[in-house]
Design a binder for these strands. Structure first.
Lengths: 119, 119
DNA sequence: CGCTCTCCCCTCGAATGTCTAGGGAAGAGT
DNA sequence: ACTCTTCCCTAGACATTCGAGGGGAGAGCG
């Protein structure tokens, strides 16, 4: 199964840990249901990011358990049953934290990548 | 568990997937041994990043198996036995790929974070 | 000499989060 | 009737990181 070699996930998707931040961000404007969150992230990134449902739904449940988001059943724009999530106060705070940490990380990695030729 | 609140992993460390890139980068200037790689990354990031040995050594072995780096025993600057790694041709190519993907990801996430207030 | 410190290597198990690959229900459009 | 799309979900495999260990061996000091 390796000779076919068609392999590595070229769609690349996400680094572990970034999904929560993106979901929180998606909800920071308005309440959305899961399917809509995925579409919104993909669209906002100009399709550079892909959100798999198999990652998204577990993430939503996780975040609900942590109290960052709360859910409520409702009716979607396409007239279907959908679970709408919105940020809690804690979730909004978490978004701030995650953005700050993300930016620190990006900055730190950038420093390493552009580090002066070193001995 | 919130009143103590002192804890979340403030050291934050790394996102899954970035370690390989940083190690490749560390070796892109010169051959180094594991312990030195860790120190170099930490120093280059002005101590914003911390490289755990429990993550580093498995990563090095992984990357060696993949043919990105090659190892050779030698003598460290402190006069100790140390395993020096250097980039292979494939490893250098991999570094290029990983940097490109990293920058795409950063750009994509940035777009999402700064996405215009959306409906 | 014995002691401690630092350097340097390693492994294991737990935890976490992602992906693939399913399954299913129900409205919309033909 | 049929298919498409929307919408939800889970289970298992997989990868990677982390914390906590263990160990050897040179250096410096009393």
């Amino acid at each position: 199964m390796k000779e076919t070699g068609r392999q590595q996930p070229d769609r690349a998707v996400l680094l572990q840990g970034t999904l929560d931040m993106l979901v929180l961000r998606a909800l920071s404007c308005s309440a959305r249901h899961g399917y809509d969150i995925a579409r919104w992230i993909e669209e906002s990134s100009a399709d550079a990011l892909e959100v798999e449902e198999g990652s998204l739904y577990p993430a939503l449940h996780r975040m609900e358990r942590k109290g960052w988001i709360s859910a409520e059943w409702g009716q979607s724009a396409a007239n279907r049953r959908a679970k709408f999530y919105k940020l809690t106060r804690a979730g909004r705070a978490q978004l701030t934290v995650e953005i700050r940490e993300w930016e620190l990380l990006v900055r730190a990695i950038s420093q390493v990548l552009h580090s002066p030729a070193t001995e």
